[in-house]
Design a binder for these strands. Structure first.
Lengths: 221, 221
DNA sequence: TAGATTGTTAATCGATTAACAATC
DNA sequence: TAGATTGTTAATCGATTAACAATC
């Protein structure tokens, strides 16, 4: 299994490769990639090794080849159909991102319990009653589910999805989703990201404070 | 510096503690927390150790004490003012989440270049011209910036924020933000999360396939 | 008391980084 | 050729997990 940090970094490299591809750059070295993302070149090489793409000493990697190698590795070549449960604020923001199809998925329908929303469309994606989801998952052979519902219904929705044959769930709710181990649960929990941000900010301050204190102590001698 | 996985897990525990607090539970053990999140109890104890909260052998931790300990640790007690750059789909979804103040930040103003948006409000948050952002950051002593603009302007916006005195940036664009090391950059890049989801799904399939092949080989003997 | 749980040290595991020969 | 870069093995680092005495 590829380390998660490697998968994330590869997706980052892809953004750069898109730009380089548009610029017509033909070759790129791990030294260059590493400089841009403030990483170790060896790490970039290790990451690329997972994709199976090989480079040429002295010149580096062919930009197009590497780009396609990562796209294939992430399985982003053919976007997979996905169902969105919950057409609230985050749900509709996701529905508006038509370019998710450049990132491996395509939302083809949304589901909600709110009668006022059912029947409406967001960015051409129709909103159905949540009751219809399980049958539609089966009939349309959908393998990816997105949960952007209120937290208290999240586990129930996940169970419905799993029973109907979903293989992977992208979870935007702050709750832990329990699932059998053959199901992939990927959490996009913004509050966890906020936790890292706010904690790191205080840590930076402590750092400064401690240095300050040492300095103070020194000048008081 | 606290390991990032620890910070994220602590934020997860908090969700459980909220529920337990509402239920009136007084004590909670690491065994219970670990079971719910499918973790090792020792890991949970190690995580809690960072907050400085201590438990009692046999009974565990006081729920309220642990809850408040984590809130303090994450610096979520007093939500910090934040500015939002970019009032597009994700930007407005964020602006609608009034409960971000339970997660350490409070969006007090939004900024955009689109003249049609300027002057309007999202969930009572006024949208100003982006030109006004630097001065307002200084005057209002804002320390947290959120970037939800198109990718090509992200670095520029980040520079404006940093020059004006922002300490931490929550980045929703898919680009890498370069910043001095005293600035905290936290990426909430949804596409990276998608990369993990889609890759893990193919890996699960490989797993099955390999097992299948071994099985096939065995029965063919 | 017996048993569950904490707090903490030691062992293990996995990811990152260093070193360096091979190559163009 | 000299120098930059790859590919790969070894060393290091940091996080997780195991072990276990102390405690209520």
């Amino acid at each position: 299994m590829t380390p998660e940090p490697t998968i994330r970094r590869l997706a980052k490299y892809l953004e750069l490769l898109k730009i380089e591809l548009a610029n017509g750059t033909e070759e790129i070295s791990t030294t260059k990639i590493a400089n841009i993302f403030e990483l170790d070149p060896t790490q970039v090489r290790k990451d690329i090794e997972f994709t199976g793409i090989i480079g040429k000493p002295k010149t580096g990697y062919n930009v197009r080849e590497l780009y396609e190698g990562i796209i294939n590795f992430l399985n982003w070549k053919e976007p997979k159909d996905a169902f969105l449960a919950g057409a609230g604020h985050i749900g509709s923001a996701l529905a508006h991102y038509s370019n998710l199809s450049d990132y491996g998925i395509k939302i083809i329908a949304a589901f909600d319990i709110d009668r006022k929303k059912i029947g409406k469309k967001i960015n051409d994606i129709e909103i159905f009653s949540i009751d219809k989801m399980p049958n539609l998952i089966r009939r349309m052979n959908v393998k990816i589910g997105i949960i952007a519902t209120p937290p208290d219904t999240a586990q129930e929705i996940a169970n419905m999805m799993i029973d109907a044959g979903i293989e992977g769930i992208w979870n935007f709710t702050p709750v832990h989703i329990a699932a059998p181990e053959n199901i992939v649960i990927e959490n996009a929990q913004l509050t966890l990201s906020l936790a890292v941000l706010t904690r790191r900010i205080v840590e930076k301050k402590y750092e400064k404070t401690s240095l300050g204190e040492i300095y103070e102590r020194d000048i008081n001698k």
